[in-house]
């Protein structure tokens, strides 16, 4: 499996031009905050939602992700961040 696996282009998505997107899997976040400081668009924020691990999870607070993957690369927790860049 390649690292940056190519997702199947799907017809419905193609109708609208797909935007880069980011997901923070809040149940896996340890709230180190590193993704927040490295997001060039400042769209990630600390929250006061305490997750199952006991950390106040980081959340995606705004639109505007450019898919630079900084957050993915710096996050120490495998699986906490997913970035899609069309």
């Amino acid at each position: 499996m390649p690292k940056y696996s190519m997702s199947e282009d799907n017809v419905e998505e193609k109708q609208e031009k797909e935007q880069p997107s980011v997901i923070i899997h809040e149940e896996l976040c340890k709230a180190c905050g590193l993704c927040i400081i490295h997001c060039p668009k400042d769209i990630l924020e600390a929250s006061d939602k305490i997750n199952e691990l006991g950390y106040p999870t980081t959340v995606v607070a705004k639109d505007g992700c450019i898919g630079c993957a900084n957050c993915y690369l710096i996050c120490p927790e495998p699986g906490a961040v997913t970035v899609k860049k069309p």
Partner: peptide
């Protein structure tokens, strides 16, 4: 072509 950065299949 979408590039996806996500948890690697080399992990459990």
């Amino acid at each position: 072509m979408t590039k996806v950065f996500e948890k690697s299949p080399a992990f459990f």
